[in-house]
Write a protein that binds this DNA or RNA. Structure first.
Lengths: 234, 234
DNA sequence: ATAATAAATGTAAAAAATACGCTCATTCTA
DNA sequence: TAGAATGAGCGTATTTTTTACATTTATTAT
């Protein structure tokens, strides 16, 4: 083993705890990931997930919300714990447990200024650079979780604007599952679930004809859930 | 807020980290949970999951393995992280993060003496007593994970002996899903997956006629996985 | 010999998933 | 302003999967 600069920072006489956030967005048919440049040594300046040490008096989930708000200005977004990363040597500086949480955000809602101020940047999920520590693993695990979860719970909608078209929704699922879906079958399946409300507006960005906008029907979804519903989009 | 005895033990100037294990077994058609009486104040003597503080120099997963071995004598069992529990006030004694991991063990393999020595006891999953801290929540979450996971991955087999009968396997899935399955359809489905090896032996414990024993075909399962297989037992 | 017990098997009907081609509404341009 | 171009939207036939359901078989105990 060779001694590295990082070893100078080892403070391993106690546990530290960090909250790292995997922030997903969706734009232009692509899943995006929000990254920023690490502000502290070691590895200062490298691309990293957004994170923070957890304060002694705050819940882990609160820490994640705090970080998210600091960087993006967003509150009340979908966020769920992924898992804890606890290799003894995962951080060269500290004995630091990281609890990773992933967030799904409507990419146009975030505060662009705040993001820029923090040196953050949206990356296409297929072009994620090398990240510090085990953050690439976290991203991979979060993507896998998203893939699993989207199939049985309507979390995909968290990534779309309030109003969206069926082709947009299909693009999203294609991006999550990484495979093409048949548009006729997709539409049929989605509409049969009875959780979409058709609006009188059209979105003309995608085509000359324009596509009708829909909203997710939270209310009916809850009702259906209670009556033992099996939501599944495969 | 009233002052409790537990407050005397508050040492909240730093993070502690614990590994708690949700240990599942299966016997007599029922899912079982291994619990033991807590050895430290506060709440000494109460029923609790098996756990330990994590040592500064060990991986989180190692800590869980260590605990499991200490109590049951078992190594090399299926174990997977559930999630971290990180409410600031979850433990009245410390600011303690717990990383919960669940294990699936073949109930007859464990070292009975060791278990008794540690004051441990197997409970039917439907008769779990009140546990310390947030351990009941951990159990509920682990059960839910088991239910989800068993559907797409052959982890159920970890709970059965090496050799098992199809009726046993069905009982297990009925216990996990908490619903009855049609025996003809279950058998048909399982055999169609091509991951069971039929043996020449019978198990006569369950009936006069006896049921053929099977083994899980790990090798073929891996092959099938690689060729893009969709394992599903619903 | 016979009664009792759980194991093992097959088939028909219903439901869900898949494959696939044409028309429509609108905009752009010739 | 006619017509070409573009993605939206719809329907049906086929295949696959799931569900529902009843009888026979091997063995043990009486």
């Amino acid at each position: 083993m060779t001694e590295t600069i990082a070893d100078l920072y080892r403070i391993k006489d106690k546990f530290y705890a960090a909250a790292d956030c995997i922030i997903f967005g969706f734009e232009g048919g692509r899943i995006k990931l929000l990254l920023f440049r690490r502000r502290v040594e070691p590895l200062k300046g490298e691309w990293s997930l957004i994170g923070s040490f957890i304060r002694l008096e705050e819940d882990v989930s609160e820490a994640a919300k705090r970080v998210l708000k600091e960087i993006t200005g967003l509150e009340n977004v979908f966020m769920e714990q992924l898992k804890a990363y606890g290799k003894a040597n995962r951080d060269p500086g500290f004995r630091c447990l990281s609890i990773a949480q992933y967030a799904l955000i409507r990419i146009n809602d975030y505060d662009e200024e705040l993001v820029e101020k923090h040196g953050a940047h949206w990356f296409d999920i297929n072009e994620v650079p090398d990240l510090v520590l085990d953050h690439n693993q976290m991203v991979a695990d979060a993507l896998e979780r998203l893939k699993q979860k989207a199939r049985y719970q309507p979390i995909g909608f968290e990534l779309l604007p309030e109003k969206f078209t069926i082709p947009q929704l299909q693009q999203l699922y294609e991006a999550i599952y990484r495979r093409e879906l048949d548009s006729r079958n997709f539409r049929k399946k989605l509409l049969s679930l009875n959780v979409l409300i058709k609006l009188d507006e059209k979105d003309k960005a995608g085509s000359k004809r324009g596509a009708f906008l829909y909203k997710f029907d939270h209310e009916n979804y809850q009702k259906l859930l209670k009556s033992g519903y099996n939501f599944e989009i495969a």
